[in-house]
Design a protein around this nucleic acid. Structure first.
Lengths: 211, 211, 211, 211
DNA sequence: GATGAATGAGCCTTCATTCAT
DNA sequence: AATGAATGAAGGCTCATTCAT
């Protein structure tokens, strides 16, 4: 009996996770409006009703997916060891990390995009998001402060602007890959193109933060 | 008679234009999937079926809206007089133009976003888009060549990367305003914030292209 | 001027004819409900409004097509020279004629089918149809009377039943070709199959009318 | 509990059946194109979406109706006891059965008609139809073989042609009742007319198969 | 906890027809 | 005589969600 119960609990958590995973994929691929609850159920190999049982409705589910996505990037970001090198180099490491995270988690930027299309209506209702993302700002703040002390980074740089710059240079490239690829008639997803983009991004940030 | 006919033609063109305008607004606001043909008709004060009469279906309509959007930004961009000043300054002018165009035409970046969500399926089917956007590349190519000759701009800069950088820094800020505003708990749409953002963008690009 | 007028009149009659021809094809192919006025206009290379100008609406147009169809088969039927041979042979000639007419005018049976699906609502409103089809009955009546006198045809045969039998044996085969072909897994439209069918039909009618 | 479950299953099957029944009526009455899914739902006293839930779409529903129709006639046909009498008489029994089946199931011939209008597109996609109808051919094949042996039926008669003849003589009369009734200005649905028609049909088939 | 059945609202699109010249 | 513009009424189908067990 106990075994059963345990097994059940495990299964339950597992199924919830499977639904969340399926939802992330679907939402990222189609956007909130384009996503289909049926398809999420199918992907998760779960009964559709189960989704409602666990997550109440499509909006709540999306919110959960979004929160988890933020949590994940912040977790990995916080795990970087940026103290070992000078602040300017650490910032470039952050550029690299951001870029690679976007590449390896393409859902992340797509989810954000969809949420912004909806004017952040899910985030507005989410209690935890601000909290989750607090480290994003504090990391760069610390880095900028240290860089300034070290003399490796220009003094009057705003942490939010730095964060935005780092994200922007990678995010825009990746999110608009489809249209840019057509306009420039090249495949922007090829390794060479991606490497070159990272080089440019680091070059750009490096020039900007140089004292 | 001729007058009548003219009037008719004008009315027709006008109604088509009204539909396109309404569609741009709706598509920008809700994205392709979230947009409702009914609402477009309502906004245009046109009969819904007229939309199908003129534009066949929602996809064709979206494509037309998108093409027109590209056409418009390129037209204004091409109208800038960038030859009067050194190339490095001209590039900063381009940064300013892009920023202000995005601000004054918020639909533009939202349409692009939606189209990318759909993996550019409309653009892929659009003959004219590449052509329409040709000037985008050539303008910066010319500027970079001149800047290199003048010694005002660093030599080995790629035109596409420059274009992407300029767009990215503004685009990301504006498209993600909703979520960023929540995470940073500030209103990023306030004049002061916008001005500061433009300053940073110019600073960043200037540092990057400096010889 | 006169020439103009004549030319116009000719064109007019011609265009009406083109519309009728296009309508016959479309109605036969898709049935009344499946037929599209747009497609008829397209087929006739005429403006859609012109159809309404000439024929008021889809129902009237269908009625005209139907009347013309009846008129045509009766005209050809009446043109047969059945007096030259004994009545029993003449009847078999009628079987042959009917069969070949159906084969060469596949629209005819399909139009009838569609009209019957609609419970003959067009025919009910058509004044001329009964009149047009009067010869159908009288021809066989005459033949049966003559055959009886000659001793080549059995006496107590009803003209209507004869007509129905003749039509039925060919009509059913042709109108149900698609489904029968699947059930019997053969191509019933092949020449050999068609010839065999005609042979059977004649055999059957011959046996039935034999004195 | 078990009872409940059973009841549910019964209800479900019942509702599906009610939908099928309603669909048969509607399709027969209006043809595939003229039929309205709304009306089917109404007739079945079911929610319209339930139809899509069970049958995916209008075409699938029609296919199911068609298959069931074939299944039913073949089932009844196979239940005839034709072995008790000489083959020639058995064949006339088949004529009678076919006629009465058509009379009592007027939807059958109308469904076939509609399907043929659509060039058997549903049947083509139906796996089971050929199988379902296999007995149609084998019954007459057996009868013809026996009749030949007995000397009660002419030897060289093709089973398919016999089937077609039997069906044709009744089918044509019934399916074209509306138009024929107008042309001949009589009510072909009156008992006397129907009886007379059956008499003629048997007479005709009897004459044809006589050795 | 889990699931098959059922539904209301709405969406894109079609179509015959009319308007206005 | 001829036609481009416009429309009301539906039609098939989808989708998030709820019911009932």
């Amino acid at each position: 009996m106990a075994v059963r119960k345990e097994k059940n609990t495990v299964d339950t958590a597992d199924k919830q996770q499977r639904i969340l995973q399926a939802a992330r994929t679907e939402f990222a691929e189609k956007g909130f409006d384009g996503a289909r609850v049926d398809r999420i159920a199918e992907r998760a190999q779960a009964n559709k009703q189960l989704i409602y049982y666990y997550f109440t409705n499509k909006d709540v589910l999306f919110t959960r997916v979004l929160e988890d996505a933020y949590r994940d990037i912040r977790k990995h970001e916080a795990a970087l060891s940026l103290d070992a090198c000078p602040a300017n180099e650490a910032i470039l490491k952050l550029v690299e990390f951001t870029w690679h995270y976007y590449l390896q988690n393409p859902e992340f930027i797509r989810l954000l995009n969809s949420e912004n299309q909806l004017k952040a209506r899910h985030l507005k209702a989410s209690m935890s998001t601000v909290e989750i993302n607090q480290s994003w700002l504090s990391i760069t703040q610390d880095l900028l402060a240290r860089g300034s002390r070290e003399g490796t980074v220009r003094g009057n740089i705003d942490a939010m602007q730095l964060n935005i710059n780092i994200s922007a240079l990678g995010f825009f490239y990746l999110i608009n890959q489809s249209t840019l690829g057509i306009l420039y008639q090249t495949d922007l997803s090829q390794k060479a193109a991606l490497d070159e983009r990272l080089r440019v991004m680091k070059e750009c940030i490096a020039a900007w933060i140089k004292p």
